[in-house]
Amino acid sequence: MFDKLELRLSGSGGQGVILAAIIIADAAIEQGINAIQTQSYGPEARGGSSKAEVIISKDEINFPKVTTPNILLALTQNSYDKYIATLDKNGILVVDESVDIVHDAPYTIYSLPILETAQNKLGTHMVSNIVSVGALYALIGEDVIDKDIMLKSITNRVPPVTVDKNISAFEEGIKLIRG
């Protein structure tokens, strides 16, 4: 039963992980559960690695920062190397398949063709963040946030002309987990 989830989304600057985190947080409050979203700023946010965090919880959220995420998304080797040590040992790791990972780790691992799906199935790497949202959503579960609400959140937050493409990206992301 869902109580509280802490997510850390990481990648390289420009991959849109902050928007991905905002979309999840937005959907959560629309669902009527508590959410808080934070991110790193500064040189770290301009090129190089980038990270954003979301906490969603049935209860009031006090401490706003994620320390030990239940779910870690890493789209690049750099971000995996940087944040893997923070992942809860019973947590879930979602990485792009291009990332080399240590396989005998205690957490559940999903190594997915996120970047390839964006580029080859949807025709642009720009939507890899929304493919990621799809994958993360499949793990968070429909019992936590309604799919309609997720779709609305994406629609509201992406540029209007890209809505259809992003919705497709979201669906593809879900498929990466559910097959």
Partner: peptide, 9 residues
């Protein structure tokens, strides 16, 4: 900065 930049409802 914590309060300025975090997103909440």
């Amino acid at each position: 900065e914590t309060v300025g930049h975090m997103r909440e409802k």
